[in-house]
C-alpha cells in the first residue's frame, strides 16, 4: 500500500467517523439521516480506492450499488420522518424514546418541558416487556359493558 492510497483510505475513514458522531449525537431526525449519508460517502471513497488499488472495476461498480441503496434509503427515510413529524409535530428523536421497553431506563431528557408531549397520542404502539409474562388486562363483564347494550 503506497502512501497515496493510504491517505485516501484515511480520508474515507474520517468521513465515516464524522458521520457516526453526527448520527449518535444529533437529535434532529433529518440530521441523523444526513449523517448516515456522510458515512456512506466514506464507504464509497474507500471502495473506489480499493478498486483503484487492485486496478479492477469492481470498486466503482460496488459504489454505484451503494449510490442506489443510498437513494432508496433517503426516500424511505424522508417519508418515515414525515410520518413521524405528523404524529409528534417535532423532529426531536428523543420524543420517541417512549417506544423502549417499559422496564428499561430512558435517556436523560434535557428539559422536562419536552417530556410527555406524546402522551396524548394513544395510537402509539407499546412494547410488552420481554421475559416476563404480562398480566391479564382487567376485563369488564359483557353484561355491564357498553357493547352489550348495542347488541
Amino acid at each position: 500500500m503506497t502512501p497515496d492510497e493510504q491517505r485516501f483510505l484515511l480520508v474515507g475513514a474520517g468521513l465515516f467517523v464524522l458521520g457516526a458522531i453526527g448520527f449518535l449525537t444529533r437529535r434532529n431526525l433529518i440530521l441523523m439521516v444526513l449523517s448516515a449519508e456522510l458515512m456512506l460517502h466514506g464507504v464509497s471513497l474507500t471502495l473506489v480506492t480499493f478498486g483503484n488499488m487492485h486496478q479492477t472495476n469492481e470498486g466503482q461498480a460496488f459504489t454505484i450499488f451503494t449510490l442506489t441503496v443510498a437513494a432508496c434509503e433517503a426516500g424511505l427515510a424522508l417519508s418515515l420522518v414525515l410520518s413521524l413529524y405528523r404524529k409528534s409535530h417535532s423532529l426531536d428523536i428523543q420524543l420517541w424514546s417512549e417506544l423502549r421497553e417499559s422496564d428499561m431506563s430512558g435517556p436523560d431528557f434535557d428539559s422536562s418541558a419536552e417530556r410527555g408531549k406524546l402522551s396524548s397520542y394513544d395510537d402509539i404502539p407499546t412494547l410488552t416487556p420481554a421475559g416476563i409474562a404480562p398480566k391479564d388486562p382487567p376485563r369488564t363483564t359483557p353484561s355491564t359493558g357498553p357493547t352489550a347494550t348495542r347488541v
Binding site: M1, Q6, L9, L10, A13, G14, V17, L18, A20, I21, L24, T25, R26, R27, N28, L31, S90, L91, D92, I93, Q94, P107, D108, D110, S111, E114
Partner: peptide, 29 residues
C-alpha cells in the same frame, strides 16, 4: 428548535468514534 441547540451524549460518542478512527489509522499505517 431546542433540540438543534443541544446534542445528546456528545462526549461519549466523540471519544468512541475517535478511538475507532485511531484504530483504523493504526491498522492502515
Amino acid at each position: 428548535a431546542g433540540y438543534d441547540q443541544r446534542s445528546s451524549q456528545s462526549l461519549l460518542a466523540t471519544i468512541s468514534a475517535f478511538v475507532l478512527l485511531g484504530a483504523i489509522s493504526l491498522t492502515l499505517q
